[in-house]
Simulated scan of single mutants.
Amino acid sequence: MTTPIRVLLVDDQELIRLGFRLVLEAEDDVDVVGEAADGDEAIRAVAAHAPDVVLMDIRMPRTDGIAATRSIVAAHPATRVLVLTTFDLDEYALGALDAGASGFLLKDAQRSELTAAIRAVHRGDAVLAPSVTRRLVDRLRAAPPAAEEPAASATDPTAELTDRERDVFVAIAHGMNNAEIAHHLFLSESTVKTHVGRVLAKIGARDRVHAVILAHRHRLVDTSAPPAGEGHGRSTT
């Protein structure tokens, strides 16, 4: 029997936590292991319960979801954080993604969307629509290089990638999903999925969101040009 996905619920509103708990406890493969009402409680609860996935509210008293996400990801890299937000990718949600969250979910999401998002994050995918990825890309493009990372571009995290993997990495950095990458590089989606997994492993990225952030922080993407590879017509193998 498959081990249930261990989930921690974090929200300052008890009724919202109760609603999520009722939905998730009806799923055979999900186990709600705890709750927290703010970021401080969440950090302690993750240390105590070692959840696989944290459903994290953003706007909470004391320590907010962004600070809590940053602490949890740093101390517990195996735990994935799925951000809960009321608005479609507001600045708070973007901040949480930058802090290490693996995606975001609207609080009014349907039951099927919630359970699918938890399963996706647990298996290592990022829960982020392509349009949202592109908005994140736009924000990263507009941001100046971080003052504390003056030599970031000196170390290329893509040095171990093959040419084909680098093409896939650049496509990810431009916000393409697997279907778009497959069409763009003339590959099958299953082949793209394999390449994406290898790319993330080689560059040390948690997921696609982290890969986008790495690409733009290290200035590895020419934002004035489309991804390389279009029209190459290479093999799918």
Rank of each mutant, 00 (worst) to 15 (best):
Met1His: 11
Thr2Gln: 10
Val10Asp: 08
Glu14Ile: 15
Ile16Leu: 10
Leu18Ser: 11
Gly19Ile: 10
Val23Tyr: 01
Glu27Phe: 02
Asp28Tyr: 01
Val30Pro: 00
Ala42Tyr: 01
Pro51Met: 07
Pro51Glu: 04
Leu55Glu: 08
Leu55Val: 11
Asp57His: 08
Ile58Asp: 06
Ile58His: 06
Arg59Asp: 11
Gly65Asn: 05
Ile66Leu: 08
Ala68Phe: 07
Thr69Trp: 10
Ser71Met: 13
Val73Gly: 00
His76Gly: 01
Arg80Gly: 02
Leu84Glu: 12
Leu84Phe: 13
Glu91Thr: 15
Ala96Met: 04
Leu97Tyr: 06
Ala101Phe: 07
Ala101Cys: 04
Gly103Leu: 09
Phe104Leu: 07
Lys107Pro: 10
Asp108Gln: 12
Ala109Ile: 14
Ser112Leu: 08
Leu114Phe: 03
Leu114His: 03
Ala116Lys: 06
Ile118Arg: 00
Ala120Leu: 08
Ala120Tyr: 03
Val121Thr: 14
Arg123Ile: 13
Gly124Trp: 06
Gly124Gln: 06
Pro130Cys: 04
Pro130Val: 07
Ser131His: 10
Arg134Tyr: 02
Glu148Ala: 12
Pro150Gln: 08
Ala151Ile: 03
Ala152Tyr: 07
Thr155Phe: 14
Thr155Met: 10
Thr155Trp: 13
Glu160Thr: 15
Asp163Gln: 13
Arg166Glu: 05
Ile172His: 03
Ile172Ser: 01
Ala173Arg: 07
Asn177Asp: 15
Ala179Met: 10
His183Ala: 13
His183Arg: 13
His184Ser: 11
Ser188Pro: 00
Val192Tyr: 03
Val196Gly: 00
Val196Ser: 02
Val196His: 02
Ala201Ile: 09
Ala201Ser: 11
Gly204Pro: 09
Ala205Ile: 12
Ala205Glu: 05
Val209Arg: 03
His210Cys: 03
Ile213Thr: 15
Leu214Gly: 00
Ala215Tyr: 09
Ala215Pro: 09
His216Val: 10
Arg217Gln: 13
His218Tyr: 08
His218Pro: 02
Asp222His: 04
Thr223Ile: 04
Ala225Cys: 04
Pro227Asp: 04
Glu230Val: 07
Gly231Asn: 12
His232Gln: 12
His232Phe: 09
Gly233Trp: 03
Gly233Ser: 02
Thr236Ile: 04
